[in-house]
Structures are given as structure tokens and as C-alpha cells.
């Protein structure tokens, strides 16, 4: 009987089953690595989000402060009615940028522009970071704040975490990213094997690919980071006005963001470096239910958030070079 022979054949090969100990360990190591990788790739995504942030003032400058067709306003508040008058006294700016993919907060970044206007800092916050969500939960993933209360609750959650108040909150979607990339004619991605031109769909796929990225690949976060850096650089060259009109559908500003536009309409950051900041290592907080949260900037959170508040990130970066995930000269 073939059925019985099959049973015997299967039973005879049970010795091929791999040892459980090493297998279990390999699973743990890979899981942690993949979590870490998600974090790194996400911090690269910030570069795109900030391209959009920087582009918004350019649009308002152009339209002289009238209602902007390409920018969706989050609340019913009207855009400023008087022509934009740039503030004379420069002050540091903090903008919260939320990258949204399929309705979920995928990227959360604090964009900091120093009073000296000599750089843009992008401070990534881990999506799975363990945080207090005000009036919602004493301990949750950061991304849950967006699920539970949108951009507004996310802003309050980050304020609770960092003590910072924000000059504006900007929400950017992946379709906007795609449009931005296409608008600049794609970006060039150079790896060891050579250079390749990516269009918007490619770039978006690369960003989303973190879920499919496997361990066999050589440092997959690097291509994503380079691709995004290249886009930020190209965007600056191409003139940001056109970009925001293309990407407009996916870009949302809150009230404070709109007010901000009036103040910073003419700040010129072209040529200044964009510095990405992220935690140098992944530090897990295992919870009772088997879920694992990430600790937000283990050991350096206070120093970092204080440096943002004091406008002294340059000194922080000098003291913690391992926190720099990438630096992109804009040209």
C-alpha cells in the first residue's frame, strides 16, 4: 500500500529535523535585527517628509498668502488673509512630521531648524517606541497615538514625551512622496554595482520594502537612505514650489503649521546640510503579552530633547556622532 509506505517514509526522515536550540536563537536574532532595520529605514523616510515641509513655505510665498490649491487644510481655519511678512527675529523652529502609509503613522520625525538657519535636523522617533499617550493610555506604541487621535493626538503625545511645543504639524502620505520623486525626474541611486535612476514608484517601493527586506541582502537600509537623500538634494535644486503642487494631495497642515507658513515664508535652507538623527542601537522593552516595544533613545533621550529645546543640536551631534544616521549636503 502506497499510503503505508508514505507514512513510513515520513517517519524515517524525522532525523532531518534541525536542532531546536540554535534555531530558536536564530529566530530571536533575526527578529531583533529586522526590528532595528525597520527603524533605520524609517528614519531615512524622514528626509522625504522634510522635503515636503520645506516646500510648503515656498508655495505660500508664491501665492502671496492666498488660499493654496495644493495644500489641504486640516481644520476649518482659513489660511492667513494678509500677505506674508517674514519675521525679522529668527528663532529655532520645531515641526512635527508624520509620514502616513495606508492610514497608519509610519514615520514620526521632529524637524528642527536652528535659529542660525545653518542646517536641518531630522530627529526620528521609533514608531514602536514605548510612550504615554495623553488621555488614552499610560503605555502604548507611539504609532497608536495616530490611530487613536490623528495628527493632533500624535503631537500631544510627542510633546508629553519630549517637552517640546511645535510650530506646526505636517502629515505626508506615500503618494505625495511618489509624486515628488517623479516631479524631479527620479533620483539616482548609487550602490557598489553602479548607479540607477529610480522613479516615484521605485522609490516608494524601496521605502515600503522594509517589510520584505531579508537578511541575505547587504545592508538594505543604505539604498533607501541614499535614495531619499538624493531626492532631498534634487528637490532643493528643482525649486520646491512645483514639488508641493504635485505632492499637495498628500500633504496636510494643522493650524499651527499654517501660521508657521506666514513666519518662515522666505527662509532659505538651500545648500545647508540635512542631518538625520536616530538611536544608535535598538533597545527592547518586552511586555507581558509577548509584544516588544522599543525604548526611545535609551540613555540619551533627556540630553537629546533638551538639545532640541535649547537649540544646541550641533553640540549634541558633536558629542554623540553615533546618533547621526545620515547627512546629506543639499547640493
Amino acid at each position: 500500500m502506497i499510503e503505508n509506505e508514505l507514512r513510513e517514509t515520513f517517519a524515517r526522515h524525522e532525523h532531518l529535523v534541525p536542532d531546536q536550540g540554535p534555531l530558536r536563537q536564530a529566530i530571536e536574532v533575526t527578529t531583533v535585527r529586522r526590528r532595528r532595520r525597520r527603524l533605520v529605514v524609517r528614519s531615512a523616510g524622514a528626509a522625504l517628509a522634510v522635503t515636503a515641509v520645506l516646500a510648503v513655505p515656498a508655495l505660500f510665498n508664491y501665492t502671496g498668502g492666498s488660499a493654496a490649491p495644493a495644500v489641504e487644510v486640516a481644520s476649518s481655519a482659513s489660511p492667513p488673509e494678509t500677505p506674508v511678512t517674514p519675521v525679522a527675529a529668527a528663532r529655532p523652529l520645531n515641526v512635527l512630521v508624520i509620514g502616513v502609509d495606508q492610514g497608519r503613522a509610519d514615520t514620526v520625525v521632529i524637524a528642527h531648524v536652528p535659529a542660525a538657519r545653518d542646517a536641518v535636523y531630522l530627529v526620528s522617533l521609533p514608531r514602536d517606541g514605548h510612550v504615554v499617550v495623553p488621555q488614552y493610555s499610560a503605555g502604548e506604541k507611539l504609532s497608536v497615538a495616530y490611530d487613536a487621535g490623528g495628527a493632533d493626538l500624535m503631537r500631544r503625545t510627542v510633546r508629553e514625551l519630549t517637552g517640546l511645543t511645535f510650530d506646526g504639524t505636517v502629515t505626508v502620505s506615500y503618494p505625495a512622496v511618489k509624486a515628488l520623486t517623479d516631479e524631479v525626474g527620479g533620483v539616482q541611486l548609487c550602490l557598489d554595482a553602479g548607479c540607477e535612476n529610480l522613479d516615484g514608484a521605485d522609490a516608494t517601493a524601496l521605502l515600503r520594502a522594509r517589510h520584505q527586506v531579508r537578511d541575505g541582502d547587504a545592508s538594505p537600509d543604505r539604498p533607501a537612505q541614499r535614495c531619499l537623500g538624493a531626492l532631498a538634494a534634487k528637490a532643493a535644486d528643482a525649486g520646491l514650489l512645483a514639488l508641493i503642487q504635485i505632492g499637495g494631495d498628500g500633504v496636510t497642515l494643522d493650524d499651527a503649521g499654517l501660521k508657521l507658513l506666514g513666519e518662515v515664508g522666505d527662509i532659505d535652507l538651500a545648500g545647508e546640510p540635512v542631518v538625520g538623527i536616530g538611536a544608535p542601537r535598538y533597545s527592547a522593552i518586552p511586555l507581558d503579552d509577548g509584544e516588544i516595544r522599543e525604548q526611545v533613545y535609551p540613555g540619551t533621550a533627556d540630553a537629546l530633547f533638551t538639545a532640541i529645546a535649547d537649540d544646541s543640536l550641533a553640540a549634541f551631534v558633536a558629542a554623540h556622532p553615533d546618533h547621526v544616521t545620515g547627512q546629506q549636503p543639499q547640493r
Partner: peptide
């Protein structure tokens, strides 16, 4: 098994 269990853990 490894690939599956990593996903299991990430989506527990």
C-alpha cells in the same frame, strides 16, 4: 521555520 517564526513574533 525561521522566516515564519520571525514573522510570527513580529505580528504576535
Amino acid at each position: 521555520v525561521q522566516e515564519t517564526m520571525v514573522r510570527v513574533q513580529l505580528n504576535w
